[in-house]
Structure formats: C-alpha cells, structure tokens
Write a protein that binds this DNA or RNA. Structure first.
Length: 594
DNA sequence: GTGCGTGGCGCG
DNA sequence: AAAGCGCGCCACGCAC
C-alpha cells in the first residue's frame, strides 16, 4: 500500500515512495523485524487507542515507521512483536505527542519509556510556531504533503458507516491501519523538517526543558489526584436543592421560566424599567454579565448570579468528578505541557487551573491520599517581579527589596502617605500595576478598579511618573518586534531561554505580557525539573501556572516543605528575588478558607 | 440529535 | 494615542 493508492498521485511528494504495511502474519512479522534492524536517524512510533484515557480505553495498534516505510501492528494479536521492538531498538524514538503514547504503552505494555532518546514533534512544532495548528495531520499537510489528511477523512466516513468507535474498529479495516501506519512516517518527515529550524534558533535548552516537562507531566497524569466523592455528592445535593427552590421562586415572583437564559432575564428587567446599555463583545446582544448584574438594583439580579455560580460548581465540577475518576478512584486530568502560545500548561478533564478561590467549595473536594497531606507551594507575585526584572525599573526593584507588602510600598509612594494593607488605594495600585503589565488603558483600569475614568487616567499618570519602567519596556519590546517583522518576517519577543513568542498582527502590545507569562512558565517548568532532581517529583500532582500541588506522606511533609521552597526559591538570577511559599493542608480548599 | 458560535466566568 | 494576556467548560440557541 502506498499513499498514491490512498489519495492519488502526488507528483514528486516526499511521501511518493512510502510503503505501508500491516503485520498480520508470521512472515510479515519477520519482515518487520528485518526492517527494524536497518539503521536510520530516528524511528517513528505512534499508537491508536479507543480513547484518551489509558486506564479506561484499549490500546489497538502500535505503529512504527521511518522516512519510507510504515508498519501497523495490532496490539491484541501481535503485541509480542511490538514489545520486542520497543525493548530492543536502541536508537532515537520520535513520537507526535510523546506524553500521550508513552502513557498508553506504559499502562498496556508495561514499557518504561527511555526518555533520554525520545523526541516529540508536537513539542518541536510548538516551539517553532506556537500560533499555528500542531496536530500531526495539519502539520504534515502544511510541511510535507497536502494529501496527509486524505486517509483521515476516509477513516471517519468508514467508521461512521459501520458504527465503530476507536475501541471497536477492526484493526484490519484498511482505512484504519493504513492511516495509522502513515502516522509514524509523517512524524519522521516532520522531525527532519523541524529539527534544523530548532537548531538554527538555538532551541536546545528550551527543547530539553520541554521534554523534561512532558515526562514529569505524564507521570502526574498517571498518578492522578485524590477526590472526596462523598463530600462532592453531599455538597452538590445541597446546592441543587437550593437552586430548585430559587428557580421556583423566580418563576412565581418574576414570571421568568429560566433565570440562566439571558434573553428571558433581560426581557423581564426591561419590563421593570431597568435600563441596560453594556453590549457583549460581539455587540450583538445586551450584556448581562457579573459586572452588569452586580450594579443592578433589582432583586432578580442577585438570584441570577447565585444560580449561575451554584450550577457551575455542580455541573462543571462536583457532579462531573465521579464520572471522571479512574478505576483507582482518583482523578486523572489531562495536562498539556504546551497548552498556550506562551508555553503555559493547560489542564483539561477537568480544568483544574480554573477552580474558584474566593469560594473554597470545589477545592475542598481535593484531598491527599490516605496517610498524606497536601503541600501547596506558590510563587510570590512572580509576574510583577519579572516585570521589575525585565524593565530594570529601580523603583519597582527597590520596592521588592523592602520587608513590607509590595503593593503597599508602591501605593505609599504614589499617594505620598503610608498606605496599609486594607486600604482601597492598595487595590487600585495593584489593579493598575497588573493592568499596565498586560497593556490595559485607563478605561479598562477604571473598570477593574471600579474608579472613574478621570481618576484612572490621573492615577496611571502618577504610576508612570514614579515607575516609568513598564511603559519603557512596552516601547522597547514593541519596537524590537517591529524591527524583527521587517528583518525576519515575524514580530516576536524572545524569552531568556531563547523561546520566540510571536505576536498577532496589530497586537504587538501583547508581547510584554507574552514575555512575562512565557518566562514565568519557563520558571515553573525549570522548577519541576529541579524538584525531580531534588527527589520529590514522585509527590507532584498538579502544576497551576505559579503553584505546585504535592501529595506527601505525613512523615515527610516537614522535609518536603523545606526542599520545595529551597529548590524553587531563586535569589540570585534576577534583579529581584523570586520566592515561593509552601503550606501544608488537609485539602486544597483549606488554604483558602478563612 | 449533533455541531457550533456566543456569552459568561473561573483561574493565573 | 491606544491596546489586558493566556486558557477550558458549560448553558443557550440556532443551523444542519
């Protein structure tokens, strides 16, 4: 089988001579072994599975390939051949999304991935250009041959016609195994294409760190995190009971059938003479968001907010957890080490980086394993500290060296009198500082700080007079990016690790945020690697942007708290100290409970 | 019934 | 001069 059989002639495509094979006999298995013993720069490896969860879904195919030949090996019937190949092959292995495939091969084949010789083209693609799609098919279609996607379409229609799922499709169904066998070949071609680009940009350090992160995250996903399901049930039932009563009351008192339908609520509010003016982002509708509802003097508003919140907590989190847990009773979220353009990680299933912190209801469901405690360690104002570092603003740097609350120090200087912790002016200063960092203008700062536009404009001016570094940094980063657009065709900012983060057209102002966010992400990843070197990685359960969660045996807690803090603290690299604070708690929520 | 865009909102 | 950044998920409501 060749790709031309699949998708017609492709002229002088690099895939022209690719041969695709299915191991379905002893002879084929022998032929595969002979092929495997040939020498090559890297061996492509891929898997097909019934779904995304190694603890819940079957492993169906394991595929191997190089630049000219791809093999699909059914796991159930020919797993022994796969095991031999994995265990005996000694050269570099290249995957597209290694963290995913390696966890399947770990769970089903008991394979220990030899991480030091594993490469990952998805990671490479993200480093080369984080703003473009990085799935194997779109990437291959763009870099290698547009026909790379042909088999996928064929497969999806075929599976739909037969009503097969990933767990039930027969492995000898040609569209399935042919498409599978092509993937490691595509991976090898992408590897050869992207490798030189990474090299030319001196991405060795960034790539090594990313691969270390892939490994550590894969382990965290496998480890999972413990959940108090009894608590989830009880709390969800409480909230649902309240919502039912509230909905009945709203129907009775206000004639609104569905208080989570903005259309219905807006109609009712307008009937009662409420004037709404704020529009949604698209401008298509009147907005009825938290800000609008909070400002309304109508009893319905309060209920809508409370119902939204309660239903969110139940449906997104508490009620979902019991369906998401694995056979081991633990939650195994999916951690994407390169979830964001800036190199930040993202977590899905569930989205554990978005748990409410003002209300500890959901976080309280997260508990340590039996006999353990949670160690929660977060970085102190890391983004503002990095802003001080990158901007060289002496005022900001000095403020961080004082033994007092950073934003109180700032506010005291701006307002010319001693501003204490509870003072409203501290919050305004904090809003303005972060707003400026992210490129906000006076109007946005006025809204987030809940002050008038005049006051905001005046305050921004006062902030700039005292701490001109941030505006100067903005100018410098944007000018550099525009120079790069002229010289290299891309507007980007470069992080200290050498990562290039590109700007969208007309949005160069976002690059200051990219620089800070990117480098904070690099620091977290470096931190995870250092924690591994300090021998505590086996306790890691979650990374949350500037926080790490560890699940630690009681007896080791005191030790681990010290190790984690001293490992992550960095007092010398930057113009301000980067410090982390670890605390021990019986649940994640306990940290946020007053 | 399913897919998709929009609105809304949670976190850092 | 002016510009908040990055994500994921759910409910709603419309289109197919």
């Amino acid at each position: 089988m060749t790709i031309s059989d699949l998708a017609g002639s492709g002229g002088d495509s690099p895939l022209r001579d690719v041969q695709l094979e299915l191991v379905d006999s002893v002879d084929k298995a022998m032929e595969f072994k002979r092929w495997l013993s040939q020498s090559r720069r890297a061996l492509g490896v891929d898997t097909e599975s019934g779904g995304l969860r190694p603890d819940l879904h079957r492993l169906r195919l394991v595929q191997f390939g190089d630049m000219t030949r791809g093999w699909a090996i059914p796991w159930d019937r020919w797993g022994g051949v796969t095991m031999e190949a994995l265990n005996q092959y000694e050269g570099p292995l290249v995957f597209h999304n290694a963290g995913f495939d390696c966890r399947f091969l770990q769970a089903h084949a008991g394979w220990s991935p030899p991480w030091s010789r594993i490469h990952d083209t998805m990671t490479m693609a993200h480093l080369v250009d984080p703003s473009r799609p990085k799935g194997l098919k779109p990437l291959s279609a763009r870099l290698i041959d547009p026909r790379a996607t042909a088999g996928e379409t064929l497969l999806h229609t075929g599976m739909g016609q037969h009503g097969w799922t990933g767990d039930t499709v027969p492995t000898d169904f040609p569209p399935y195994w042919v498409d599978g066998a092509l993937d490691p070949v595509l991976t090898c071609h992408v590897f050869e294409k992207l490798g030189p680009t990474l090299k030319a940009r001196h991405y060795e350090t960034a790539y090594d760190l990313e691969m270390t992160t892939v490994r550590i995250c894969a382990d965290m996903m496998t480890r999972g995190i413990n959940i108090d399901l009894g608590y989830c049930d009880q709390k969800a039932e409480e909230l649902r009971g309240w919502v039912v009563k509230a909905r009945e009351m709203i129907k009775r008192e206000y004639g609104v059938d569905n208080p989570t339908s903005n259309r219905q609520v807006i109609a009712k509010l307008q009937r009662d003479g409420v004037e709404l003016t704020k529009r949604t982002a698209s401008g298509a509708d009147l907005a009825l968001d938290k800000e609008v509802l909070n400002a309304l003097d109508h009893p319905l508003a309060e209920y809508v907010l409370a119902i939204r919140k309660a239903e969110k907590i139940c449906s997104t989190y508490l009620e979902n957890f019991s369906e998401m847990i694995g056979p081991d009773g633990r939650l195994h979220p999916s951690i994407n080490p390169l979830g964001a353009r800036t190199g930040r990680m993202s977590i899905t299933g569930p989205a554990l980086q978005t748990l409410q912190r003002d209300d500890p209801t959901v976080r309280t469901a997260f508990i340590p394993s039996a006999g353990n405690r949670l160690v929660l360690c977060d970085a102190d104002q890391i983004e503002m500290r990095l802003a001080a570092h990158f901007s060289h603003d002496q005022g900001l740097i000095d403020a961080f060296h004082q033994d007092a609350d950073f934003f109180c120090v700032l506010a005291s200087q701006i307002f010319g009198e001693d501003v204490k912790k509870g003072d409203r002016r501290r919050q305004i200063t904090k809003n303005t500082g972060y707003g400026k960092l992210y490129g906000a203008g006076a109007p946005t700062i006025a809204r987030t700080a809940k002050i008038t536009l005049e006051a905001a404009a005046h305050f921004v001016q006062a902030f700039d007079d005292r701490f001109p570094g941030i505006t100067q940094l903005m100018t410098k980063v944007v000018n550099e990016a525009e120079q790069r657009r002229r010289d290299e065709g891309r507007a980007y900012v470069r992080t200290p690790l050498g990562r290039e983060v590109p700007a969208d057209d007309e949005r160069e102002y976002a690059l200051v945020n990219y620089l800070i966010q990117s480098h904070a992400a690099e620091i977290l990843k470096r931190g995870l690697a250092d924690l591994e070197a300090a021998d505590v990685a086996r306790y890691l359960v979650l990374p949350v942007h500037d926080e790490v969660v560890l699940d630690v045996p009681e007896a080791e807690v005191a030790d681990v708290v010290n190790v984690v803090e001293s490992t992550l603290n960095d007092l010398t690299t930057y113009e301000v100290p980067l410090t982390w604070s670890a605390e021990t708690h019986p649940s994640w929520g306990a940290k946020y409970r007053k």
